[in-house]
Design a protein around this nucleic acid. Structure first.
Lengths: 192, 192
DNA sequence: TTATATACGGAGAGCTCCTCCGTTTAACAA
DNA sequence: TTGTTAAACGGAGGAGCTCTCCGTATATAA
């Protein structure tokens, strides 16, 4: 009988290093607009084989998710900060506009949101939870304070904003998306 | 010098027939949920070669667009009817809910909306115009009657609804989308 | 019947995602 | 240091899809 699984070998340094290089390469590529870059190409630029890429990331979405996970977490964290700083409804408004900014600068995230929001794959469960918790908390506070009705499923706000961000790609879409934020909040007011 | 182009040969009967069979086959496939069906398979079922399919439809989106063009036109036509029947804002509300139904029954349309709304391809110009005219007219009437502010780009309403329809695929998404319609309208009221 | 514009079919080019597996190497124990 | 082995590597290639090309066939018009 061998050692219990509690004592495991430490992860190999080349493994961690290659993973980092892949993430960094992907981040750079996505950030400069190369949204449809083939995974082979990312592997090539990172100086590793395609097999290595797939060992670290199950598929394209998983890579995208990993690239943006940190920022997703930061976005979620800022929800807490806003909640502590502003009145409930204003915190919600501000955060939704941050969300628009987030989609704006990371256009790639939109395709990934599909898997993120509706995907059943366990890989995305964490990030989904992070998002739903953030938006859910802000909405709950605004409902408690009586500023908005509990009519809307919080996550639907993100879906609607994402829709505009994807489909309305003309000039000024970002402004339009932010106006939509105001409309959504106005429409959720108790009197509305 | 040959005949002027004004007098052209009448389109070949086998051509029209095959086009119809392709449309019908695609309609059936899409309608029964086979959204990702390969075009080869559609051609096979229609009893024609893949080359024939591509001669009639430039690409996948063009086929989808053709399949749903008639219904898209009907949807647009119903905007006129609603405008004649209901008060401006109620006509708008009703039509937006029809739009949700439309996406609900034709899930395929969502991917095509991408090309439809933001695509530069001339193929989609017609259908885009049909949609923008329909929604634009309804919104304009509601603005004139003083029921809503001219804050929102009409097409953004469709984008938002489409977003929910695509990303919120859980149970009851249709209801949620319709609630969003009410929220969007409430949020666009002058007082809001 | 003949001429020809039009349509047909399907092989295959090109691309991408992802898998598989023989080879290499870092971590650990002796 | 050296041997053992779990972990990681690379990249050929399978599989699937979109779309093109071009030799063949045929409906239409003269």
């Amino acid at each position: 009988m061998k050692e219990d699984q509690t004592r495991r070998r430490r992860p190999r340094s080349d493994g961690r290093k290659n993973r980092e290089r892949l993430l960094e390469t992907a981040r750079t590529a996505f950030g400069s607009g190369e949204i449809d870059i083939p995974l082979d190409e990312i592997a090539r630029r990172a100086g590793v084989g395609i097999g290595t890429l797939y060992r670290h990331f199950a598929n394209r979405d998983a890579l995208i998710e990993a690239v943006y996970r940190a920022e997703l977490n930061r976005l979620a964290a800022s929800a807490t900060h806003l909640a502590d700083t502003y009145a409930p409804v204003e915190a919600l408004r501000a955060w939704l506009k941050l969300f628009v900014d987030y989609i704006a600068t990371k256009q790639v995230i939109a395709p990934a949101l599909n898997s993120l929001i509706s995907g059943t794959d366990a890989i995305y469960a964490d990030s989904r939870a992070v998002l739903t918790t953030a938006i859910g908390g802000l909405v709950a506070r605004a409902v408690e304070s009586g500023d908005i009705r509990p009519d809307i499923e919080p996550i639907d706000l993100l879906c609607a904003l994402t829709g505009v961000s994807i489909y309305a790609t003309g000039p000024g879409w970002e402004e339009r998306a932010k106006r939509l934020v105001d409309i959504l909040i106005a429409g959720s007011r108790p009197g509305g």
